[in-house]
Design a binder for these strands. Structure first.
Lengths: 207, 207
DNA sequence: CAATGTATGTACCGTTTCGTACATTAGCCA
DNA sequence: TGGCTAATGTACGAAACGGTACATACATTG
């Protein structure tokens, strides 16, 4: 196969395919050879650009987290009333999660390995802040107006929302199977989306 | 090493160690040799009792799920008022999850593999029912008395509780790292436990 | 106490899998 | 255009890994 060279395309194609394979098979389950075969290049390039299997995984993690961070920063709810804003944030988070199952699965994989790889990625040291600041501002306004309870902080709320959303994707196989509920079906999804909004609003307005 | 034979002990020791290794390393990451080495017997016994690596994993899954089912059945909240009952159920579920991280991690591993193994375990076909029936009864009483909202079912509530509890354990590494919150610390745990109760009660009583 | 089947240990095999040595080509710049 | 470097391809090696053949010891039972 003689084809023109394009370093950037080779690199990004490897990243893309690797994201898929790692999220489908886990870190140990992913095969370097399989990743290479699914691209238009060869295994050699993984070692050339990423140094090895672990380097590739780190790059995949970094790219995935960067994507979610960018999205979180684009989420602005400053023009909504506090109660509407938290519902909005919850729903957008929900949409983002169900639209990016690969990312969620990747996070699961990384947690199996106790975050060992994540800690090696310098650029992800201070990633939490953005998601928390938007919520923080909304909660402050809600507390001031007396609409929202004051005994929880932004991280508490973010965790609750994340937990619900992550579960939808990360545990859909076992939960769906055991309770006979297809978590991927559009109507079920829409229902869960509404329920999440109800939960967050009900929780934060009860006091 | 000459030691008296004890088939049952060999079997259960293999299961115990395998649970640990699979939940720590994932399915593909777990090494048959390592599991064997950590026991007082040899690799040979894994093939003798479980047929192979996958058979061992199936047995581990089955044992873990059986343990959680037994606990769910022992959970009786019939003598409590509906509102207190749901908080109680939520808190007991929380306690159980944080006390059995291996099980949660195992479920994560199984979900990475899309529940492929779980489906092979005959004895786990109808496992969902127990957890749902207890909640179902409480919700019915709450609806009748007008204390609890009527637009959600037991599976919805169970899912919400599971999501929150599973997240505590399954995502503690990445979430804890990114938000600088040690999810395993006793005081944090206690706080999250109370918050879960507040969430469930606030949600179900808002209508 | 002999016989028989269950339980266990050892040594090894074939494959898979990550990684690399070596060769080669494409494009850029003097 | 000729050379130089970045990029890519091929073939292979060594170790890891799941699995098994074969030998053997224990314990139960008739």
């Amino acid at each position: 196969m003689v084809q023109s060279r394009d370093a950037e395309r080779t690199r990004s194609e490897l990243l893309e395919v690797a994201t898929e394979v790692f999220s489908e098979q886990g870190y140990s389950g992913a095969r370097v050879d399989e990743i290479a075969e699914r691209t238009r290049t060869t295994k050699r390039m993984i070692y050339y650009y990423f140094g090895g299997k672990e380097g590739l995984f780190l790059a995949v993690l970094e790219a995935a987290y960067r994507r979610i961070r960018d999205l979180e920063q684009s989420l602005h709810a400053g023009d909504l009333e506090p109660v509407d804003a938290v519902r909005r944030i919850a729903e957008l988070t929900f949409d983002h999660h169900v639209d990016h199952p690969d990312f969620i699965r990747l996070v699961s994989v990384e947690n199996i390995h106790r975050g060992r790889h994540l800690e090696k990625v310098e650029s992800l040291r201070e990633l939490g802040a953005p998601a928390a600041t938007v919520l923080d501002e909304v909660l402050a306004r809600g507390r001031a107006s007396g609409e929202l309870r004051s005994d929880v902080d932004a991280v508490d709320v973010h965790m609750m929302i994340s937990a619900y959303c992550v579960f939808q994707v990360a545990n859909s196989a076992t939960f769906g199977y055991l309770f006979g509920r297809d978590m991927l079906a559009p109507d079920v999804r829409e229902r869960h989306r509404r329920i999440l909004g109800d939960i967050v609003v009900g929780w934060l307005t009860a006091h």
